[in-house]
Design a binder for these strands. Structure first.
Length: 152
DNA sequence: GCCAACGTTGGC
DNA sequence: GCCAACGTTGGC
């Protein structure tokens, strides 16, 4: 099993939204970055776990843990001209963008703030805490995972 | 709201 | 294939 971190803006889709979804499960759509897509499409497996990270908000940080419950399949929002994630270069027979389904495992007891993650020596190699990083789907090592869980 | 950092686009 | 211009991300 691998570990991941998924970023989302809580104003768009936050952990409260996932908690309120049927079976606490939702598709993770809208990824439009190739590196992030490749991680999701090629390396994510059912049963993997991921941190749910809140970005671009008042309290950026890790809010919860989710499980990958469906492996990658075409992101249908790319086919929909009405969607803000529409991409005319992606077609159903030659999909360019993919999504997975995630299920909420649990919220953390508190949102672990980005500032604390940045301050922790064991986490300095995480893309998340590196300057200018914009990757929205990234792998997390077992050691980083355990470190973060211990900060809860 | 600002702006640095980054990825993508498109002319050449 | 280069690289300047542009749009987006996301912390602060």
């Amino acid at each position: 099993m691998r570990y991941w971190l998924l970023k989302s803006e809580p104003g768009v889709f936050g952990i409260d939204d996932l908690a309120a979804a049927p079976r606490k499960t939702e598709h993770w759509d809208g990824v439009r970055n190739y590196q992030a897509r490749n991680f999701m499409r090629d390396d994510m497996r059912k049963g993997d776990r991921a941190f749910f990270y809140h970005s671009n908000c008042a309290q950026p940080g890790i809010a919860g843990i989710v499980e990958i419950v469906r492996e990658s399949y075409p992101d249908r929002t790319a086919f929909d001209p009405e969607s803000e994630h529409y991409d005319p270069r992606s077609a159903p027979d030659t999909p360019r963008w993919f999504m997975v389904d995630v299920k909420l495992v649990r919220r953390l007891k508190r949102v672990i703030p980005l500032a604390e993650l940045k301050a922790h020596d064991a986490l300095r190699d995480m893309p998340l805490v590196r300057r200018g990083n914009r990757l929205s789907v990234m792998p997390v090592t077992a050691m980083q995972w355990d470190t973060i869980c211990s900060m809860e």
